[in-house]
């Protein structure tokens, strides 16, 4: 096991959906996708974003793209034209998720 930031095993993109954001994350290999599918639950993402996301977190899987899609409700300070946040559209939430550290089995890190 090695403590690894998601930057090393995935890529991400995020954007706004009303007063929420979506964060898409794609694993670098099929094995890492299986690992993220097990480990990167909606609950874990909600806990990680607790200072940003004040609503539920919903998760969808796209195994064909080795990807997971998270919806972070109530995470944009009003969203749209109402919010005063610098990151009004959640553009940084994808980069943010990649800062998460997970214990990854060594054999997946080749």
């Amino acid at each position: 096991m090695a403590k690894v930031k998601l930057f090393d095993i995935a890529i991400a993109r995020s954007g706004d959906k009303g007063d929420g954001s979506n964060v898409g994350i794609m694993a670098k290999t099929p094995e890492l996708y299986d690992f993220l599918y097990e480990q990167l639950t909606a609950g874990r993402v909600k806990e990680f974003f607790k200072e940003i996301c004040f609503g539920e977190v919903e998760r969808y899987a796209l195994p064909n793209l080795q990807a997971l899609n998270f919806i972070l409700y109530d995470s944009l300070g009003g969203g749209g034209t109402e919010t005063l946040l610098t990151d009004a559209q959640g553009k940084c939430h994808g980069t943010g998720l990649l800062h998460m550290e997970l214990d990854v089995p060594d054999e997946l890190l080749v």
Partner: peptide, 13 residues
């Protein structure tokens, strides 16, 4: 391409 497929995506199905 995948990054953009995921952009502003809701329920993928």
């Amino acid at each position: 391409v995948t990054s953009q497929l995921l952009y502003e995506l809701g329920d993928p199905q």
